[in-house]
Amino acid sequence: MTRLLKTIVTALLSLSLLAALAAYWGWQQVQGFADAPLSLDSPIEFKVERGTSAKALGRQLVAQKLLADNWQYPWLLRLQPELGAIRSGLYQVEPGTKLRQLLALLVSGKTKVFSVTLVEGLTVKEWQSQLQTAAHLSWVEQPFLKTLQDNGDTSGLPEGKFFPDTYSYHADDSVLDLLGQSHRKMLQELNSAWAQRAAGLPLKDPYELLILASIIEKETGRADERPLIAAVFINRLQRKMRLQTDPTVIYGMGERFKGNISRKDLLEATPFNTYRIDGLPPTPIAAPGRAALMAAAQPAAADYLYFVSRNDGSHVFSVSLAEHNRAVNQFQRKAQ
């Protein structure tokens, strides 16, 4: 081998070595860049719009000051092209998240999950106010009525027909999807309670059971008392006695209720004044939970016809009017 040829080979080997060293250095730079935490001091919601490419995402990260302007990002996508298959949506990003982890999250499509709890004992109007302020939930007007219509219910009476529970959703999901779940769950729970009802109940159909359950829900929050409250109302219905329950009066008063019921209110003729009407009111007055539905379906085996509050969340139950009046004197009139 001539001296010139040796020189050329040596030069080529040196250049190859330098190229290899440069490539290794570049690879290390890219890997270090990918495993460095984003510039993030607190959790954020990070939105990837539909149609955003991985390259556009890099510009978005720089614009939002999560990454410094860099040369490593395009090279990371070349070295690991699978990290570029990002999906749109709203993501929760925590402090300490690395770029590689962020890209893996966006590739997974595991968008942020939100939840809303529809509390038992509340009305459709109260739930609507809550849902209107729920984060990232797509709103439509009259969602409860629209949900009923979408499910074949044209009655125009949404009260009580949605099950109280915690529901999950993703950003920009429609409120109709959430309420659809709630409505279908109420139908399921109501039909289950109706199928398990005790024999001889003075209730014509599942809707009447739903109405009664809503009253039970409003009368007590104590699990041990629900079957007893149900027994009182069932016994009164069987004896053709009026229910005389304050929550129905309050519901019928609507916005006029300011915290107290007057004698005039009890004498007012409204469809919901059970001091004036016979039987059940025309619709539920709130959303009953599973326990209230089952209490209406399976009331306690008790002869009670009356109950009065002890002012501590519990009630005194009585068989006779004389017993009831004594309890009223003890727990209500003395407290006034």
Rank of each mutant, 00 (worst) to 15 (best):
Q132H: 06
D150T: 10
D177R: 07
L122F: 06
E189Q: 14
G200Y: 01
W127S: 11
E208S: 14
L179V: 10
H170Y: 11
V116E: 03
V140Q: 14
A198Q: 13
L118R: 05
V140N: 09
K161P: 05
V119Y: 02
A135D: 09
Q196P: 00
F233A: 05
D153N: 13
E141S: 15
A171G: 13
N151W: 07
M186I: 02
E225M: 12
Q181D: 09
S214D: 08
L145T: 02
A230Y: 10
L137D: 03
E120G: 05
E217A: 08
E126C: 06
T154V: 13
Q196S: 06
W139V: 07
T166E: 14
H183S: 08
H183Q: 15
G160Q: 10
A171S: 12
P143K: 05
K185L: 14
I229M: 11
S174V: 08
S214M: 09
E126F: 02
P227I: 09
T117S: 11
A230S: 15
S155A: 09
L131V: 03
L210Q: 02
D172Q: 13
T220W: 00
E126M: 06
A199S: 15
W127G: 09
K161M: 12
K146F: 11
P202R: 14
D224V: 01
G200C: 08
V232I: 02
G121D: 04
R222M: 15
L187H: 08
L131W: 06
L209Y: 05
K204R: 10
E189D: 00
G160L: 11
W139N: 10
H170G: 04
T133R: 15
S192N: 11
L176Q: 09
E141C: 02
I229S: 01
L176G: 13
D224R: 11
E208T: 12
S168E: 14
I211V: 15
K161D: 03
I234P: 00
F144S: 00
L137I: 08
N151V: 01
P206N: 10
K112G: 01
G200K: 09
Q130E: 12
K218A: 10
S174C: 05
W127M: 10
E217K: 10
I211R: 06
R226I: 09
